[in-house]
Design a protein around this nucleic acid. Structure first.
Lengths: 139, 139
DNA sequence: GAGATAATTGATATTTTGTATCAATTATAG
DNA sequence: CTATAATTGATACAAAATATCAATTATCTC
C-alpha cells in the first residue's frame, strides 16, 4: 500500500526516511480526508518526535507528484485525498457539508481529449457532485 | 448577473443589504478564483467600511446555498468559484499548480443516476483533471 | 410612511493553518 | 566507512479563519 508511495518517492530521487515512512503508512491506513494537523496527531501517536513541518512538507511533496490532492471542505483547513487509483468521486451536500464517496466513473475519453488539446499529460481526476442530501432537503 | 444571486438570497429569506450587493457585484464582475481576502480588497475599493467578516460570512452563505464553491489551489487560502451555470471544469498542473478552465462536459446522466441512488438533489458539479502541463513535463 | 423586531454588520480579539529559517541530523553514493 | 547533500524539527512568523457583541439596518406590520 504505502510501499507504492515509498517507491514513487525513491524512483524520483527523493529519500525514503523514517519520518516519511510513518507519514505514508498513517496516510494510507487511515484513508483520505485528513487535514495536515489531524495527520500530525496520528503520526505522533506512532512515532514521537516527528515535527509538524515534516508532515506539511511530505504532503506538499506528494501533491507535487500528483499522488495526493488537497481539497477544501468548509473547515478552514485543507483535507488531503489519496490519488492512488488516479481518481476520486465525491457527492457533497452543500447544506450540511457531508461528503460521500462513490465509485461510478463515466468520463470516457474526455480526459484524453482535453489533455491532448492542451498538451497535458493526465494523471487523474476528481469529480465532485454538489447537491442537497435527503435530510437537508426535508427540513 | 449578480441580480440572480440577490434574488436567490431574497427568495430564501435572507436580506439583501448594501454590503451584500457590493460583494455579489464584485464577485460576479471579477469572475472566479478569488480568495476571501482578495475579494475583501476589491470590495473595499468600491465601498469603504465593509468588514472582512461580512465578506467571509457572505461567502459562507452562498456556499451553503450551493451557488459558490470553495476550492483549494495550493496557496493557504480557499478560492471561490461561482456555480451559476451549475458546473465548473479545471485542468490543473500538479507540478506548477496552474489552473486552466475548460468547457467540455461529458458526464451524461451520471449525476442523475448517482443522485437518485443516494437521495440527493443535484445542483452542480466540479470536474478537475490533474496532470503535468507541457512546460513542466519538458523540464 | 413610521416603528418594532430580528437579521446583519464590523471592530476587535483569538485561534487555527500554513510558511520561513537554520543548525543538527541522516540517507545515500562512492 | 566517509563525504555530501537532502531532510528534519524547533522556533518564529505570517496568513487565514472563527468567535463575540454592541451598533446598525432591512423588512414586516400596521
Amino acid at each position: 500500500m504505502s510501499d507504492e508511495l515509498s517507491r514513487a518517492l525513491a524512483t524520483r530521487g527523493y529519500r525514503v526516511t523514517a519520518a516519511r515512512r510513518v507519514i505514508l503508512d498513517t496516510l494510507v491506513e487511515h484513508g483520505s480526508h485528513l487535514t495536515a494537523d489531524e495527520l500530525t496527531e496520528l503520526v505522533r501517536q506512532r512515532a514521537t518526535g516527528i515535527g509538524r513541518m515534516t508532515v506539511y512538507r511530505t504532503l506538499d511533496l506528494l501533491c507535487g507528484l500528483g499522488l495526493l490532492r488537497p481539497v477544501y471542505q468548509g473547515t478552514g483547513a485543507a483535507h488531503y485525498i489519496l490519488m492512488e487509483d488516479g481518481h476520486h468521486h465525491h457527492l457533497i451536500c452543500t447544506a450540511c457539508s457531508r461528503v460521500i464517496e462513490f465509485d461510478e466513473c463515466a468520463l470516457g475519453d474526455l480526459p484524453a481529449r482535453v489533455a491532448g488539446r492542451l498538451g497535458f499529460r493526465i494523471e487523474g481526476h476528481l469529480l465532485e457532485l454538489y447537491g442537497v442530501c435527503a435530510e437537508c432537503a426535508g427540513s
